[in-house]
Design a protein around this nucleic acid. Structure first.
Lengths: 213, 213
DNA sequence: GTCTATAATAGGATAGAC
DNA sequence: GTCTATCCTATTATAGAC
C-alpha cells in the first residue's frame, strides 16, 4: 500500500534521498518558486478551502503569472495534494515528539498537542475534511484521507492506546482519536465562530471527564 | 432587535398573519414555484454549501429557467438566507417539543434531539457554519448566525439550564450548547467521513461522562 | 410569472515565444 | 523557467418580449 501520489500528480523532481526528512515524499528547496507557491497555496487552501481559492490569486501574491504556476504543478488539484502532504508531514514530525515531553501523561499531552495544532496549524479543518471528500477527485480522495489520517490522527491513536488503562473499556483508539480530532477541529481556526469560546484546557477536560458533576 | 431580514432581501409577499406558523417570517405556499425553488435550494445548499451550489442547477432540477429564479429571489444570497430561515424555523418548532416527551431527562432528551436532527436535518453543518461566516456578506452574516443560534442552539441551552443541577458548576449554558452542537455536527451528515462511525448514544455518553473509566 | 438572449465576470487550463 | 495571449467553461445577473 503506497500513498505517495507525487509520481502521478506532481511535476518536478522526485525523491531526493539527501533530504533531512528522508521518509517524506516532498523535498522542497526553500525560496524556489515552487516553494513560494506551496507556501502561499497553503495559506489560502487551509483558510478558505479548495473551491474558494483561485490559482490566479496565489500566483499574483507570489509575484508570478498564473500560467507559470502550471509549470510547477500539473493542475489545481495536484497543488492542493502537495500542500496537504506538506502540512501533514510537518504535523506528524512535531506531534509524535510531544508525548515524550510530558511522560505520556494523557491530559497534559492532549493539551500540548492541541496547543501545538492551534499555534502552528490554525487551519480550517472542518472545511479541509469536506474538501478531501467532496472537492477532490474520488481516485485521490481516499489516498489524501489516508495521508491525513496517518499524520494527524496516528499520534492521538498512539496516545490513547498507551493510556488505555485509564480509559473506558472496549474502546477503539481509532474511533476515539477521530472523535477527538472532530471535537477540537472547530477551535483550531481563528475565523471560526467557535474559536476561543472555550479554552483548550476546558475542551480537553470536557472530553476526558464529561460535563456532569 | 429584529432579525427579520426578509423585507430587505426577499422579493415576493411579506408576512401573512393567517399562517399556521404566525411567528415565522416566511409563509410559503406549497407547490408554488417559490416553494419548489426553496426545497431544491435547501437540498443543495445544505449538502454542498453555498459556493458549490449553482443557481443553474437548482433551476434545472426545479424545471424552470435560471433567470426565472431571479423573479422569486433577489439574488443567490437572498435565496440562501431564505433557505436558512426556513430550515431554522422548522428545527426550532420541532426541537422545543422534544424535552417534554422525555420529562426533560438530560441524556434521553439529548439522544432524541440528536436523532431528530440527523433524521430530518442531515445537513452539512460544518460547511454551513463556515458559509454563514465566510461566503455571506458581512452585513447579513451576523443576522444569519443569530437566526441559527435562536433555532438550533436555544433548545439545547434551555435543556442544559433545566438540568443545571446535574452539570459541572459555574458552567455557561450557551457555551455548553455551542460546544455540544459542534461535537454532533460532523455526525449529522451522511457524506461526512465521520458519519456513523460512532452511534449517537455513544457520542452523547462521551459528551456527558467523558472517556475516562 | 416565465421565457430567450445576453451581458459581465471569473476561473482553470493550454500554446507557444523567449 | 517565465512570460503573453488566449481558450473554454461555468457562473451570477440583467434586459426585455410574451
Amino acid at each position: 500500500m503506497c500513498y505517495d501520489i507525487n509520481t502521478i500528480f506532481l511535476k518536478g523532481a522526485p525523491m531526493d534521498s539527501n533530504d533531512n526528512k528522508p521518509n517524506h515524499s516532498l523535498p522542497i528547496q526553500p525560496y524556489t518558486t515552487r516553494y513560494l507557491i506551496l507556501e502561499k497555496a497553503q495559506e489560502h487552501f487551509m483558510r478558505d478551502g479548495y473551491k474558494a481559492t483561485s490559482t490566479r490569486r496565489i500566483a499574483k501574491e507570489v509575484g508570478i503569472t498564473q500560467p507559470n504556476l502550471y509549470h510547477h504543478f500539473a493542475n489545481k488539484e495536484a497543488l492542493y495534494i502537495a500542500v496537504l502532504e506538506m502540512v501533514a508531514n510537518n504535523a506528524l514530525d512535531d506531534l509524535k515528539l510531544i508525548p515524550a515531553e510530558t511522560d505520556h501523561q494523557l491530559g497534559e499531552t492532549l493539551i500540548k498537542m492541541t496547543y501545538y495544532l492551534r499555534e502552528t496549524h490554525p487551519y480550517n479543518f472542518p472545511v479541509m475534511l469536506n474538501d478531501m471528500k467532496k472537492e477532490i477527485s474520488p481516485e485521490t480522495s481516499f489516498a489524501l484521507y489516508k495521508i491525513f489520517q496517518k499524520s494527524y490522527l496516528q499520534p492521538f491513536i498512539d496516545l490513547f492506546e498507551e493510556n488505555s488503562a485509564q480509559l473506558i473499556e472496549n474502546f477503539d483508539a481509532d474511533l476515539l482519536a477521530n472523535h477527538f480530532f472532530l471535537v477540537i477541529s472547530p477551535y483550531m481556526n481563528p475565523d471560526n465562530l467557535s474559536y476561543s469560546k472555550l479554552s483548550i484546557e476546558t475542551i480537553i477536560d470536557f472530553f476526558l471527564n464529561g460535563i456532569k458533576r
